[in-house]
Simulated scan of single mutants.
Amino acid sequence: MQAITFRNSDMYWDIAATLQFPPGFDKNKKYPAIISAHPIGSCKEQTSGNVYGKALAEAGFVVIAFDRSTQGASGGEPRYIEDPTLAVEDFRHVVDYLVTLPYVDEDRIGVLGICGGGGYAINITMTERRIKALASITGVNFGRLSREGFSNYDPIGALEAMGRQRTAEARGTDLQTDLFVPESMDAATKAGITDIDVLGATDYYRNRCVNDGAGTRALFSHRAASIGWDAFHLAETLLTTPMIVVIGDEPGSFGAYRDGQEIYGRAASKHKELVVVENTSHYELYDQPGPVGKALERVVPFFKQHLAA
């Protein structure tokens, strides 16, 4: 594994990433490459890098797992902005970096995204035609989630509150940064939380894969753009790239099961696959060997077919 940084030329800061290489890697050869994108509130050291990135590298791909702008080890201020427009453009800069590497075949670049990173991966693939194959792992349309559960089903009220907070911050008050998940499983229990996704997120980020680079938070005043965004907009027209969508069959409040079914139906791709992993919830697809293994059983052959690995 190689830690790297490269410039986000639009925003004047660096993107932090790791490169993972196939067994017997030869820098004089050309390889297919896959961009692995982390979930909302996560970082490259978690499921995008240490689970899916590792497995795809072992399967013969050069894999780049990156931290989105203002998150993890990447640059950008203020921190923890979850703006879909900014997030999606980061993917384009990752492609720009990959095509400068002599051992990457520019015509064989794919993308894999997990959770909100899956929604971002779907969206960028519509307009970034250098991406030739797409995999969404329990992908979530963050715009839909922001209008619904993340705004308590009151998007207009949330937008008004965001506007007031941004005005206050412009006048010098402290930034308001909100946690996406409880601080501990004990805190979740005391709050009476029973939703499988919130509990799964708390267990994953607080117990199973703790990492200082995972923010699990967002700057409240800069979340207005997400409420007006739709990861699937124009999918019927622009999403023609080969696509595989993996979801678990145990739905929770974050809505990956619903979103996966929707994008599979709407995408214009001639080759599209929907994989529903039985007895599996959203966060089990992050790192649990059984569900992850079933996902990879379909995802690896899909990428080998469409990237000719």
Results as ranks from 00 to 15, higher is better:
Leu239Phe: 09
Val104Met: 10
Val292Asn: 12
Thr85Gln: 12
Asp105Gln: 01
Gly24Trp: 00
Trp229Ala: 06
Gly192Asn: 11
Lys132Gln: 08
Ala87Gly: 10
Thr100Ser: 13
Lys44Gly: 07
Val292Thr: 13
Thr177Ala: 15
Ser48Ala: 14
Ala33Val: 03
Glu106Tyr: 10
Asp83His: 05
Asp287Ile: 09
Asn279His: 11
Leu296Val: 02
Trp229Leu: 05
His271Ile: 05
Ile64Glu: 06
Ile124Thr: 08
Gln2Asn: 12
Pro84Met: 06
Ala231Asn: 12
Arg108Gln: 08
Val300Pro: 08
Asp26Met: 00
Thr189Cys: 11
Gly149Thr: 08
Ile247Gln: 02
Gln261Glu: 13
Leu285Asp: 06
Arg206Ser: 14
Ala201Arg: 00
Met1Leu: 10
Thr173Ser: 12
Pro251Tyr: 05
Glu236Gln: 15
Gln2His: 06
Asp178Val: 11
Thr237Arg: 15
Asn152Lys: 09
Thr189Ala: 15
Gly255Phe: 01
Val245Glu: 04
Gly116Thr: 01
Val62Glu: 00
Val299Tyr: 04
Pro291Tyr: 01
Leu179Lys: 07
Lys272Trp: 03
Thr240Asp: 12
Ala135Glu: 05
Ile263Cys: 09
His271Glu: 15
Ser42Glu: 02
Lys190Arg: 15
Ile124Pro: 00
Val181Thr: 08
Val275Arg: 03
Gly255Ile: 04
Thr70Gln: 12
